[in-house]
Amino acid sequence: MLIRRCWIAVALLLVCELAVADEIRVAVASNFATTSEAIAQRFEETSGHQVTLVFGSTGKHYAQIRNGAPFEAFLAADERHPEMLESDGSAVPGSRFTYAIGRLVLWSPEAGYVDAEGLVLEGSDFRHLAIANPKLAPYGRAAQEVLRSRGLWEGLQRRLVRGENISQAFQFVKSGNAELGFVALSQVTSPERQPETGSRWPVPEGLHTPIRQQAVLLEDSAATRAFGEFVRSEEARSIIRSFGYRTP
């Protein structure tokens, strides 16, 4: 009798296990953290799958994935790392796509400090200009290209402070330690918070290589495919745009 009950319990558990949706772990570039939370929430509501988001720098995530980290999908901050994962066989072939295009903005918390053309960069009244490290972060590389295109890169070397990533560049400016900095539009615009005040120059996209953020699936399952499709859906794309990105 008791044994039979046990069997029934086990069978019930198994059925529940099948009915309960899968849980997927997604590695997400830090700049996309709040946006991905909004997307994951909608995805969980509509699909019933569970999503765990792990934030970090794309370079670190790449190294972790290459060394067996248990992520099923990867929302990177650039296209280079997903490409490498695809070519070395760590990703599901053909699953790579651009999910967001980052916008660069020159921002200062002080009103009237940054003019509409970014001519402030040519002046000498700031001590520090914050950028993300061009070696590590796509936003940093874009900022470098903008400064190079204006012929200011060499002259500004001693006044440039490099954040490890774009969030740190933002902190440098926000805390007042740097008078101005190249940050992501998504950091000064968010549907969840008050937009940042001050002054800004939205950098024309023609001045730098587009900051394409790509996603790649690392495991082929129904849940990951559903997640990939959702990120590409119009619903997710409108969330992404509301956070200050462009979508392809």
């Binding site: 720098s57 370079g59 670190k60 790449y62 190294a63 520090h128 914050a130 490290n133 070696k135 590590l136 001693r158 440039l160 402070v161 490099r162 954040g163 490890e164 440098f172 740097a178």
Partner: peptide, 22 residues
């Protein structure tokens, strides 16, 4: 620090940047 070469870019930061840049 702000990773300014020759001013605030110390060894641990340099190693970290190399790792991150693959």
């Amino acid at each position: 620090g702000g990773s300014i070469p020759g001013e605030t870019r110390v060894l641990s930061i340099a190693i970290y940047e190399h790792v991150e840049a693959l």
